[in-house]
Computed example of a mutant assay.
Amino acid sequence: MKVVGIGIIGMVLLLLLVMDKKQIQKVLERLSVYWFRLAFAFLILFAMNVAGGFIGVYVPVNVLSGLLLAILGIPGFAALCAFAVFL
């Protein structure tokens, strides 16, 4: 397990050495947008869980549903609502 971790860190450092400054800025900007979307998705999941608790609908707050909501956006929100109601 340690070897895999060291290998991944080495590959990331090698990629950073090959990239120029503008490419690194683009990658970090996209990564920051993704992390913001993920954090906002968990906020929405928490709000859905609290609001759904009043009407007896349970919305799971876990990594998979957070990723679904962060990646798909509004269709992901609709899918989570459908899963919560019909399952």
Results as ranks from 00 to 15, higher is better:
M1K: 11
K2Q: 14
V4N: 15
I6D: 13
I6M: 15
I8G: 09
M11T: 11
M11G: 14
L13G: 10
L15E: 08
L15R: 13
L17Y: 14
V18A: 10
V18Q: 12
M19G: 05
D20Q: 06
K21H: 06
K21D: 12
K22Y: 05
K22D: 05
K22C: 04
I24N: 07
Q25L: 03
Q25S: 11
V27T: 11
V27R: 03
V27C: 01
L28K: 02
L31I: 10
L31Y: 13
L31H: 11
S32L: 10
V33G: 10
Y34D: 11
W35G: 07
F36R: 15
R37D: 06
R37P: 02
L38P: 03
A39G: 08
L43V: 14
L43Q: 07
F46P: 06
M48D: 01
M48A: 04
N49Q: 15
A51Y: 03
A51T: 08
F54D: 09
I55T: 02
G56D: 06
G56E: 01
V59M: 00
P60T: 02
V61D: 07
V63T: 05
G66R: 01
L68D: 02
I71A: 04
L72H: 09
G73L: 08
I74L: 08
G76R: 00
G76M: 00
C81V: 08
F83R: 12
F86E: 00
